[in-house]
Design a binder for these strands. Structure first.
Lengths: 197, 197
DNA sequence: CAGATTACTGGATATAATTACAGCTGTATA
DNA sequence: TATACAGCTGTAATTATATCCAGTAATCTG
């Protein structure tokens, strides 16, 4: 039971309004923006979004629209064979400004281990990841090698593909496409570290 | 012309409301929260905050309150002798969730140089800084030595104070309190890096 | 000491906004 | 083929909200 295209437009406008105005839109504003002649059209879309648990409506309150699950999901340990963005992997959500990272971050992944230490990526750092299935030579990627999720720098030379750590204590991984399946889960676009002393 | 205590309470409630409800409060809600019997008391506080350029009011709009200058200020190069948080040092502001860092971040400072490379702090990183005048041994601090602002790890042994870089290419700074003035500007509580490839 | 600012009460009103009701057309689902 | 759901129009009532006006009192400022 996923969201329809029209409902996504309504949701996008709510987000837009929140960003630009600092408060949610009214039914009339939604109707005006999407070209409805009746505010009731907006109302029913909002009700549908409530039923699908995407927003909450606060009865009686003007502009009483709350977007649920806003902010970037923080992904902890990823279970083998399961998609990274599965609901069960989400530890919590963090409100981080869209546009802080470019291209935009889709989720935050918690680093395990120090194999990328010399790239300034330490154990327990949060990596901002842009979710795309393709990466270029030299980019730091989130990759899945035979169901194991790792963060490494991608090396692509002619027909050879390598995942290289940036720490001399770790060895580069030469990918053999005949025996292993390599899936690019995304490229790393940023880092957030909490020192909390 | 700064903000009064009462006005600060109103502002705090607006922020609280934004955080908890997802939208700004009405005049009546402000009045109820602060114990006013008339919504007009809230109205005049809001007007005062507008005059002091702390918020904006959108006429006619329900809950039409916008908090100006929200988010953490990003500090670029700091001019000698001027306070770090001077308005002229603010490059922009970033909307980052309060509570992402502990203790809370007061501003973001852009790193210049790689003297803290081995601590995972690279050139052009943004450091989340908690603004306090005291730091403990071992903490990474933002310090001002004779008007020069630097980021180093603080070493305090008996009566000796040192600011140590974490990169063998740089030398530790032994602070001589008779000739130099050391001011702790804050402690580093987090790092944000944008890779933008 | 006049005038501005802060900090409120109390009443009133226009309008902003939610929300109920009735109805329409398609498309998908059982 | 009945039933649900998506996606609307249109009207209207109720209530939520902003905002004006007229005061009172205390404190600060030039």
């Amino acid at each position: 039971m996923s969201i329809t295209q029209r409902q996504a437009q309504v949701l996008a406008f709510i987000r837009e309004s929140l960003e630009a105005q600092g408060y949610p839109p009214t039914r009339a504003e939604i109707a005006r923006h999407l070209g409805f002649r009746s505010p009731n059209a907006a109302e029913s879309h909002l009700r549908a979004l409530v039923k699908k648990r995407v927003i909450e409506l606060l009865p009686g309150a003007a502009r009483g629209i709350r977007v649920r699950g806003s902010g970037l999901p923080v992904i902890g340990r990823v279970a083998a064979g399961r998609p990274i963005l599965a609901e069960s992997h989400i530890e919590r959500r963090l409100q981080v400004e869209e546009g802080l990272f470019r291209p935009k971050a889709d989720y935050l992944l918690r680093v395990q281990g120090s194999s990328m230490r010399d790239a300034g990526i330490l154990d327990r750092d949060l990596l901002a990841v842009h979710h795309v299935p393709l990466a270029r030579h030299g980019q730091i990627v989130v990759a899945r090698l035979d169901d194991e999720v790792t963060v490494k720098r991608l090396y692509r030379r002619q027909d050879r593909v390598e995942l290289r750590p940036e720490n001399p204590e770790f060895d580069p991984i030469k990918v053999d496409p005949r025996r292993q399946t390599l899936v690019i889960e995304g490229i790393v676009v940023g880092i957030i570290r909490s020192l909390s002393l």
